[in-house]
Amino acid sequence: WITSSSTLDILQNVGVIFLLFLSGMEIDFSLFKRKNRELTPLEEKGKQHQAKYSVLTVAIIGYASIVVMSILMAYILNLTGLFSDIWLSAILFMTISLGIVIAGLKEKELLSKPFGQTILLIAALGEVVPMVGLTFYASAYSPHSKSLWLILLILVAAALLFWRFKAFFRFFDQINKSTTQVDIRLSFFMIVTLVTVAESVGAEGILGAFLAGIVIKLLEPHEETKVRLDSIGYGFFIPIFFIMSGVNLNLRELVSNPHTLLLIPVIFVGYLLAKALVFAALKMRFKTANAIAGTAMSATTITVVLAVLQVASHLHKITDQQS
């Protein structure tokens, strides 16, 4: 019913780029800041009853445990002979789906509470760290890779774009009528520019898209801008990426290969074990029920995994069946 074509390939690539762009827009970097403000007398009095560990401390310890366990799971997978690439599987194991976590926390109105902020921080690290790891991985194994320091040019380009448009964003806000849609045009300009820069220096375009999302987020657009970009992405481009991922999945070949089929339960268990120590980190501040719930939330993954698999396929580091 559906056959691959150059047009669908382009739309599929745009879909994954838009998916990573929107993922970058989900990250709230204000959570990483220490909030130094004067306490009211009542807050000062209740300070002695506050938790021993801050949200930031618990989140960093929690994600550090994920990194350690992910590398351990990757080594175990390598020893079993099921999957030999340790670094690729480690990157896959340490991913967390920020979009799913945010949806769950919003549903229960937990985003503004310490527990919600801790899980959100762990999930944010679960997108940023694997993306950075993927960049170095792709640079190391890509036949077209250039000097590793050239990747810093992407960060320089992102910083320049942020500095260039920060001062004008309020002006854009004033003239952003229904027919001009300057904020949406600016978002597409960011995506095209940073994806082009990323691919020019031998990195993956999805890293540029991810950084474009972060830059737009830092420019503090209106909530309506995010809603409109979500509509464009999830309404058109991103579904094509998911549909084509399904079209390219050869179920007959997958089922006929017992070795590859065995990877499904093994990797599923690996994902759960990679996030197991998050429970101990959350238990430092929160009660047992919350620690269990937070650990379950951190086990959710899809967005970055799809991007990693696409890059690995381009580099011929993974077979279609393993993917």
Rank of each mutant, 00 (worst) to 15 (best):
L8S: 14
V14S: 09
L19W: 04
S23R: 03
G24T: 09
M25T: 12
D28G: 03
S30I: 01
S30F: 03
L31Y: 11
R34C: 08
N36R: 04
L39Y: 05
L39H: 02
T40M: 10
E43K: 14
E44C: 11
K47I: 05
H49R: 11
L56Y: 12
T57E: 08
I61P: 08
I61V: 13
A64H: 01
S65D: 00
V67N: 04
M69F: 13
F83D: 03
D85R: 08
I86N: 14
L88E: 01
A90Y: 09
L92G: 14
L92D: 02
M94K: 07
S97R: 02
L98E: 01
I100E: 02
L110V: 06
L111S: 13
S112Y: 06
K113W: 03
K113L: 14
T118W: 00
I122T: 10
A124R: 05
M131Y: 02
M131N: 10
M131E: 13
G133P: 03
L134F: 08
T135N: 11
T135Y: 08
S139W: 09
Y141H: 15
P143N: 13
H144C: 01
S145G: 15
S147R: 02
I154P: 11
L160V: 07
F162K: 12
R164P: 01
R164T: 12
F168V: 11
F171N: 11
F171V: 04
Q174D: 11
Q174R: 13
K177I: 06
S178E: 14
T179V: 10
V182T: 10
D183N: 04
R185L: 14
R185E: 02
F188H: 08
T193Y: 05
L194P: 01
I206W: 00
G213A: 09
G213K: 03
K217C: 03
L218R: 06
L218P: 03
L218V: 02
L219W: 06
L219V: 02
E220W: 05
H222Y: 09
V227K: 13
R228A: 12
I232L: 11
G233Q: 09
F237M: 05
M244S: 08
S245F: 14
L249W: 07
E253Q: 12
L261W: 10
L262V: 07
V266P: 00
F268D: 01
G270F: 12
G270S: 08
A274I: 07
A276C: 04
V278M: 02
K283M: 12
M284R: 04
I292V: 11
I292L: 09
T295Y: 07
A299K: 05
A299M: 14
A299Q: 07
I302W: 04
I302T: 09
V308P: 01
Q310D: 12
S313N: 06
S313D: 10
H314N: 15
K317Q: 11
I318W: 07
